[in-house]
């Protein structure tokens, strides 16, 4: 049996033949998988899989479904007790909760690392973009800063003005990024190829976190231009063309 995603990618349907490791298999049916992992998999008799994988008599993992925890027992405690019982009954085996196994899965770890890497690069590009904009803004407004300093504005006030602008820029960029990101996410959730891995739902906490990071990025990017602007002597800034 083929998962619908895999069947779609291979262009196979029920009663077709599929060749795996040089052996021909009959496709007996197509099933719908809830996740990309399930929808992209093949379900076949264990004996035949062991044979083509040269793993006769061996399995890599068992999936065990526990009965609901008895009343009065905490689910975590019940899980730990079941793990201990399995490991005691089958020496050499390690029992791991499904959630932990999924998070330790190399693909998941790799996907997380790739997501973090991409986000870090995007953040760095964003910071450089704001820093460049703020540096240009300070340069173009040198005389304006000179006027404000000549009128008695203290350095910290000029610093605050520039940093506030950078923070607003970061905030606006964050809002724009969230809107575009959600748009993309909704599009991915509508596509059959990616609908199983992209969820259009999001937590408000994540939005607040993203906006917080955007504002912090703005402040970090504005720090050097703000410091340079605040250091300008009024008489030098006023001479600037």
């Amino acid at each position: 049996m083929l998962g619908d995603l895999l069947a779609g990618n291979l262009g196979k349907k029920a009663d077709d033949t599929l060749e795996i490791q040089g052996s021909a298999f009959l496709v007996t049916g197509i099933y719908h998988g809830g996740s990309a992992l399930e929808a992209g998999a093949v379900i076949m008799p264990l004996g035949e899989l062991q044979q083509i994988a040269s793993l006769q008599g061996k399995v890599t993992a068992f999936h065990v479904r526990l009965r609901p925890a008895p009343t009065g027992e905490l689910p975590e405690h019940y899980m730990e007790r079941a793990q201990a019982q399995i490991e005691a009954a089958l020496p050499g085996l390690r029992a791991v909760p499904a959630a932990q196994r999924a998070s330790n899965n190399q693909l998941v770890v790799l996907a997380h690392a790739a997501a973090w890497g991409t986000s870090s690069i995007a953040l760095l590009i964003g910071i450089l973009g704001i820093a460049n904009t703020m540096a240009m803004s300070v340069l173009e407004r040198t005389r304006e800063i000179g006027i404000l300093r000549a009128l008695g504005w203290k350095r910290w006030r000029v610093l605050l003005l520039i940093q506030l602008e950078a923070a607003v820029l970061g905030f606006a960029g964050g809002i724009l990024g969230i809107v575009i990101g959600l748009g993309f996410l909704r599009s991915l959730a509508l596509l059959p190829q990616t609908s199983s891995i992209a969820s259009p739902s999001f937590s408000p906490l994540l939005l607040a976190e993203a906006l917080g990071i955007a504002v912090l990025a703005g402040l970090a990017a504005g720090a050097i231009p703000a410091w340079r602007g605040a250091r300008l002597l009024p008489v030098e800034a006023l001479r600037h063309d």
């Binding site: 300093r149 000549a150 009128l151 008695g152 504005w153 203290k154 350095r155 009024p234």
Partner: peptide
């Protein structure tokens, strides 16, 4: 100097 410029002198 900032206080002088803001409170005591007009330029």
């Amino acid at each position: 100097l900032d206080t002088y410029r803001s409170r005591h002198v007009g330029f």
